[in-house]
Structure formats: C-alpha cells, structure tokens
C-alpha cells in the first residue's frame, strides 16, 4: 500500500470515528433525581433505597436512623457522621463529584446504599 493511500486511510478512519462519536452521543440525558431520602437501620435490618440517583450539582440530603450507636461514612466524598442510638443523622451535600459512592455503616461494615451521581452532560 502506497504512503499516500495509507495517509488517506488514516484520515478517513479518524473522520469516520469522529463522525460516529458525534452522531451517537446524545445531547442531554435526563436522570430522575432522588435528592432526599431516608435510610433506617433497625434490629440488624436496613430499609430504604439501595441506590440514590442524582445529577451532578444537585443538593442531596440523606437522613440515616440507627437504633444503636453507630457511624456512617460516604466514601469518595469522605463525609462522616456519628449516629447516637435512636437518633437520625443528616448528611447534606452538594453532589459535585460524579460517580458511584458507597454509604457505609461502620459498625459491621454494612453497605447502606450507593449514591450514584450522573454527569449532567452525558
């Protein structure tokens, strides 16, 4: 294959891949946001949503009740709240980082839920 033909092939490939990218990429994606939710830890059982889905930039408030002394940690955001027995801790944040973050109850390493923050422009 001649050099010019190779160059032409590479340019055509780059153009095709670029065109496909632009053609397939949606302009906006709507994510239904659950910006406020309550999670409960009672008698060794959890209740509430397994996944909290929000869009990047949203203000989120998560209320966590525990019937025993506990602590809750949101990985990635590195937010930590102590929960005295029988009380509700409030974790409020602006979802500035996109990704999937584990909300973990430290006594027993229980995964309470995942916070999924979707980028606004994908």
């Amino acid at each position: 294959m001649s050099r010019s033909l190779r160059l032409l092939l590479i340019i055509a490939t780059v153009a095709l891949l670029g065109g496909l990218w632009l053609g397939l990429k949606p302009q906006t994606t709507q994510i239904s946001s659950d910006n406020c939710c309550e999670l409960r830890w009672e008698n060794g059982q959890k209740s509430g949503p397994d996944t909290i889905r929000v869009t990047q930039g949203d203000n989120v408030e998560i209320r966590i009740f525990s019937d025993s002394d506990n602590a809750v940690h949101l990985h990635g955001y590195e937010l930590h709240r102590e929960i005295p027995a029988g009380e509700t801790a409030i974790m409020a944040l602006q979802a500035e980082h996109s990704g999937r973050f584990m909300l973990e109850l430290h006594n027993g390493d229980i995964v309470l839920a995942y916070l999924e923050v979707f980028p606004a422009n994908q």
């Binding site: 397939l24 949606p26 994606t29 990635g76 996109s98 990704g99 584990m102 979707f118």
Partner: peptide, 9 residues
C-alpha cells in the same frame, strides 16, 4: 467508583 458506561458509548 465508576458508573455504568452509557449504552451509546
């Protein structure tokens, strides 16, 4: 901590 890749990708 990544999310599932969008289907179009």
């Amino acid at each position: 901590y990544q999310l599932p890749m969008p289907y179009w990708m």
